[in-house]
Structures are given as structure tokens and as C-alpha cells.
Computed example of a mutant assay.
Amino acid sequence: MSLQKPLMRGLLAKRLRFHVPIAFALSMLTAVGWKYGVTEPRKQAYAEFYKHYDATKEFTAMREAGIFESVRPKGE
């Protein structure tokens, strides 16, 4: 009793027909998961932060603390 020879002709095309749609579906699922799991909460956090952010107030506080070398505090 001998073993049957493996069918090599068309093997790549046959396997690609099976694996490419699965890879595409998994990549789309990952992209959607990343969008709604990472980027949307991050955008919401930035929007919430900048809703109450006052750049002038922050600059004045840093200037008074002496962080900037080129800008002196008022009164000097």
C-alpha cells in the first residue's frame, strides 16, 4: 500500500482563496476596534481638556515661575 502523492498544482491559489478573506475581515475588525477603542476616547479627552484650557493663563504662570529665559516676569 502506497501513499497518495500530494496535490501541489494550484495549492497556493486554493489556500489564498481561504485565507485572504479571513485576513481582510480580521484587519477590518482590528481597524474598527482601534478607531472606537483608542482614537475616539483620545479625541474626546483632548476636546474635554481644551474646552476649559486657557493658554494665556498657563503662559503667565510659566513666565512668573521663570521657565522662559527670553521672557521676564512683569516688574523686573
Rank of each mutant, 00 (worst) to 15 (best):
E64D: 15
R63Y: 06
A55T: 08
F68S: 00
F49D: 05
V32K: 08
E69K: 13
E58L: 10
Y50P: 03
T39H: 04
R63K: 15
Y46L: 14
R63H: 03
M62F: 11
Y53R: 08
A31W: 07
W34F: 13
Y46K: 11
E58N: 04
F49Q: 13
M62A: 14
A31V: 04
E69V: 02
A47P: 02
K51N: 07
Y36P: 01
W34D: 05
K51V: 02
K35W: 13
S70I: 05
K57F: 06
K43M: 14
I67E: 11
A55L: 08
Y36M: 09
Y36W: 15
K51C: 01
G66Q: 03
V38Q: 07
P41T: 06
T60M: 14
R42L: 14
A55E: 12
G37F: 09
Q44L: 12
E58A: 11
Y50F: 15
T39I: 10
Y46T: 01
F68R: 01
K43E: 14
K35P: 00
S70R: 09
A47I: 01
T56D: 12
K57I: 02
V32Q: 04
Y50V: 07
D54T: 03
I67F: 13
Y53M: 04
R72K: 15
W34C: 07
Y50K: 04
R72H: 03
A31K: 10
T56Y: 09
A45D: 08
P41H: 02
Y50Q: 06
E69W: 00
D54H: 08
P73F: 03
F68N: 08
K43Y: 10
A45H: 03
T56I: 12
F68A: 05
T30W: 09
Y46R: 11
R63D: 07
M62E: 11
K51A: 13
M62K: 10
T56V: 14
W34E: 05
K57Q: 13
E69T: 13
M62N: 09
G37D: 11
E48Y: 02
A47V: 06
Y53F: 15
V71G: 00
T60L: 15
V32C: 04
P41K: 06
V71W: 07
I67N: 06
W34N: 01
P73K: 10
H52T: 15
S70L: 09
P73A: 12
E64S: 09
K57H: 09
E64Y: 02
E69F: 02
E69P: 00
K43V: 08
W34V: 13
R63I: 09
T60E: 15
F49W: 12
G37R: 07
G66W: 05
D54L: 07
K57G: 00
V38D: 04
E48P: 00
E48D: 12
T30Q: 04
V32W: 08
E40T: 08
A61K: 11
Y46E: 11
P41S: 10
G37P: 01
R63Q: 15
D54M: 05
G33P: 00
D54P: 00
A65W: 00
K51Y: 06
G33M: 07
G33S: 14
S70G: 00
P73E: 05
V71R: 01
G66A: 09
F49H: 14
E69C: 05
K51Q: 13
